[in-house]
């Protein structure tokens, strides 16, 4: 491990020292500086204030700032740890760290649980899963009758809800995911391993010297 010191600098509100962030996350200092290049692009796309607003998040995901999507909004809300309606750089890095290929599986399972626990009750309820299925169908061309949706829910809960209380608790979720690892596929972003290659300009903007 190197020894770092940061040069004094002027940054937008919400900026956090890469050295401090590296000690809290799976990322190296260089990777965090590369992520800052990405963050600057996203956070200046609609309102140039150094913070990611929901419209900017949607624009980055869908190339459309007005496209409403239940899941993208849930991801945004989970990234927005301070719940002030915007994502600052520290929140961006800490949340993305969960998606790193080297992040603990337990963190990924926990993040997905929070994502699907729409009402933040500590349980994934059958009604929530139905709401998510309907939202998914509305964004695709797939059409399923209510009977088919109920059959899918029956099958899913028969497998996941082992104590039969019509809701999935954290432990049931962990066991279910371990039996169905493909459910965690989108919780890992291979890009995060090559982030310094994807954003090489971080080198020119680096404020941290390895001494």
């Amino acid at each position: 491990m190197g020894c770092f010191h940061s040069k004094p600098s002027q940054h937008a509100a919400g900026y956090e020292d890469p050295v401090a962030l590296a000690s809290d996350t799976t990322f190296s200092v260089s990777e965090i500086e590369a992520l800052y290049e990405l963050f600057k692009k996203i956070s200046s796309s609609v309102i140039d204030d150094g913070l990611i607003h929901k419209e900017e998040f949607r624009l980055a995901l869908f190339k459309n700032s007005k496209k409403e999507n239940l899941f993208a909004d849930r991801v945004f809300d989970l990234f927005d740890v301070k719940r002030n309606g915007v994502i600052d750089f520290g929140e961006f890095v800490r949340s993305l760290s969960v998606f790193h290929p080297n992040a603990p599986l337990e963190d990924k399972i926990d993040f997905a649980f929070q994502l699907y626990d729409l009402r933040r009750t500590g349980f994934i309820e059958r009604e929530e899963v139905k709401q998510m299925l309907i939202a998914l169908l509305s964004e695709s061309d797939m059409k399923l009758s209510d009977d088919v949706i109920e059959t899918i829910l029956d099958k899913t809960f028969a497998e996941a809800d082992t104590n039969n209380d019509s809701r999935i608790d954290k432990e049931e979720w962990q066991n279910f995911v371990l039996r169905n690892p493909s459910l965690m596929k989108n919780m890992t972003l291979p890009y995060l391993k090559d982030i310094t290659t994807a954003f090489p300009s971080f080198v020119f903007n680096s404020e941290v010297e390895d001494v």
């Binding site: 239940l70 699907y116 299925l133 964004e139 088919v148 099958k155 899913t156 169905n180 890009y191 994807a198």
Partner: peptide
């Protein structure tokens, strides 16, 4: 042969954050 609900849900475009890394 119905799929499991979460398999379907996990295909949502809103959950695919790799789009964040596409060239802007």
């Amino acid at each position: 042969n119905p799929m499991n609900a979460f398999e379907l849900i996990s295909t949502s475009q809103g959950l695919d954050l790799s789009a964040l890394f596409e060239e802007k």
